[in-house]
Design a protein around this nucleic acid. Sequence first.
DNA 1: TTACTATTTAGCTATTTTGCTAAATACATT
DNA 2: AATGTATTTAGCAAAATAGCTAAATAGTAA
Lengths: 111, 111
Amino acid sequence: MLTIEEKVKIFKALGNDTRFAIFKNVLTVPYICNINQNVKTDNIIKQATCVGTIAAEFNYSLPTISRHLKDLKDAKLIKMTKSANKIYVEPNLETIHQLAKCFCNLLDKNS
Amino acid sequence: MLTIEEKVKIFKALGNDTRFAIFKNVLTVPYICNINQNVKTDNIIKQATCVGTIAAEFNYSLPTISRHLKDLKDAKLIKMTKSANKIYVEPNLETIHQLAKCFCNLLDKNS
DNA sequence: TTACTATTTAGCTATTTTGCTAAATACATT
DNA sequence: AATGTATTTAGCAAAATAGCTAAATAGTAA
């Protein structure tokens, strides 16, 4: 279960155009990095891109994207895994699942 | 369907401790206002409180609460209905339903 | 060890947000 | 018309946020 603080942090993270777009990118653009094209289903990282690849998709500096990714990570909306000198980024489906449950519960209680 | 702009506005609205608490209050505390205690199921306003009543629950000034309610209304998270000189507040279940769908769809696509 | 690649941290400025009080508006009642 | 009740608007100050560049860090490769 998500605490109130965790929920507010999640919504704060998604309540910014740039971060929302970054999160969407992480959700929808898998297997961009070379190393990741070889990843198999049984690998821990099933869907991942990396920081520089994401940054290249946006008209913002790399440090700015890096900072936004940190916020998304702190909100547990994404996972970041270091391998060699790259950092792979993937959505945190567990958190999305929790969010879906929250809103579904609300509907059940307020129907 | 919610546009990206609408979604970001919703998350921005919920991404603040005070507004989140106000929204929670609107969701969980029905039939507070006198006029509303007599409201029947077939009435348009099934669950409603009013601005002053909400404000009394928080350690913030009335104008501050009013401003936050405007943000929640602009994000379509709540509905505000004027009757006499009071404004009744109720959750916008349609938006909550849309949000639940968004996150459920995400899970389906990324499972 | 030097150089290269990937990313973060530091430090700064501009903008936005959040709170306040005082004043304005809107409607109801006397 | 005057008063009272409910809420919003205006305008301000403090704090938070979002962007930047330059510098630091961490790992790889020569």
